[in-house]
Design a protein around this nucleic acid. Structure first.
Length: 386
DNA sequence: CGCACCGGGTTCTGCCATCTGC
DNA sequence: GCAGATGGCAGAACCCGGTGCG
């Protein structure tokens, strides 16, 4: 995870540089020839008339600096906001502070989504009230803004937000569903109503196409099981369904059950990732002596296996097989793959120490909570007396 | 009681591209 | 020709415990 974050940071820096280049803040190449040109620019302005770009609003910059906003970051994200004559940074800060946001959180929000300071107090109050229909405390909302400012501020259309809430409710989502949706995929509520409707209609069509009798409940089931669906494109979800359809060759009714059941969880993966994982899994399992039918069985009973990255999965399977677990046992209890390689490794070692017999006892013990596992080990090591 | 089955919880943003409206 | 609004993308698992049955 940390590594991923590090990589992202690197990418971000890379992108930032590219962005600066495209805006002309940094010469494309830092070769000596650029220096004279820059000097030239400074001395002979009239020769090369600059495009009439509004200058940045100095007093705004000063305000933002005083508030602890990372102005450089803000400039890279939304340069236009810094050139605006009228903004509402103080109003926003006061508003958020009133909701319990810290100074640091507020600065972070503006740094990451500068357009937030263009929203009026009325707008903010309205939007907050709408979110409060779903959240019971301000603190919950603040934590989401801190996490993802864009989700809250990207759209200025409060009416659309209201319609989205109505629409999702009309699908049969209860408050708890909406809460989960807004907590984990807040962008859903900033989508246009049209976009959300498109996805729902798409899902309903899939259901009908597969001979399902209740498209509405199908759509709801898929979304409830995978709250990220609505922030994906129909193109992506469709491609994933096609991948599953082509590779598993299930009966329509079985595919339908898979999609609204455990399969829903992998529908939002990027298409290449899903394909790649499928191919790697197939390759790996063949190496370990499985047949095609086994692979299909595994995916149908435990689609989350395709969620696991190719390298992780390969390592995990090796770890299990090396530890004396057979592929057959894994196919019967695929949920062991839920657990981290590290966790599995540790358990295998402990079980070996106490001489656990997987042939006799099965591998269910690997698929249990830490608490239960520890209790089990304690019992196995305790003297058999009384 | 012990076990297996099963569902649930956590979690997922920050950027670019493309339109739209002024 | 700008800034705003919105769509779309890549990224990539792990863990817990209620419950019902033998």
């Amino acid at each position: 995870m940390a590594a991923v974050r590090g990589l992202r940071a690197l990418l971000r820096i890379h992108r930032a540089v590219m962005l600066q280049r495209s805006f002309g803040f940094i010469p494309v190449q830092l070769t000596p020839t650029c220096l004279p040109r820059m000097l030239c620019n400074a001395t002979t302005e009239s020769v090369e008339p600059k495009p009439p770009v509004n200058p940045e609003n100095e007093s705004l910059l000063e305000n933002l600096n005083l508030m602890g906003v990372d102005v450089r970051m803000a400039r890279l994200r939304q340069p236009g906001v810094l050139r605006k004559a009228f903004t509402n940074e103080h109003g926003l800060a006061k508003f958020l502070k009133g909701k319990g946001a810290s100074r640091k959180a507020i600065a972070g929000i503006i740094s990451r989504y500068p357009r937030a300071i263009t929203r009026s107090l009325d707008h903010l109050e309205q939007r907050w009230a709408l979110w409060r229909n779903i959240f019971s405390t301000d603190a919950e909302i603040v934590s989401i803004l801190d996490r993802s400012p864009e989700s809250f501020f990207r759209s200025s259309d409060n009416y659309n937000l209201e319609k989205n809430i109505d629409f999702l409710t009309s699908l049969g989502m209860n408050t708890k569903d909406l809460h989960r949706l807004l907590t984990t995929a807040p962008r859903t509520f900033s989508n246009s109503l049209e976009l959300n409707k498109q996805m729902v209609e798409f899902l309903e069509d899939i259901c009908a196409e597969l001979g399902g009798s209740n498209p509405e409940q199908f759509a709801k089931a898929v979304i409830s099981r995978n709250v990220y669906i609505l922030i994906r494109s129909t193109k992506r979800v469709k491609a994933n369904i096609d991948i599953l359809r082509a590779s598993l060759k299930l009966k329509d009714s079985d595919l339908l059950a898979l999609l609204q059941g455990p399969g829903a969880e992998i529908l939002d993966l990027s298409n290449e990732y899903l394909k790649n994982n499928f191919n790697s899994l197939q390759h790996k399992m063949v190496l370990l002596g499985s047949r095609k039918a086994d692979i299909k069985k595994l995916i149908v009973s435990y689609p989350m296996v395709l969620y696991i990255g190719a390298d992780t999965l390969s390592t995990k399977l090796d770890c299990l097989v090396t530890g004396g677990i057979t592929m057959k046992q894994i196919l019967e209890k695929p949920k062991v793959l839920d657990y981290s390689t590290q966790n599995i490794t540790g358990r295998l070692e402990e079980l070996q120490r106490v001489g656990y017999d997987f042939q006799k006892n099965g591998i269910n013990i690997l698929d249990s909570s830490r608490k239960r596992f520890v209790a089990k080990i304690e019992k196995l090591t305790a003297p058999p007396e009384e």
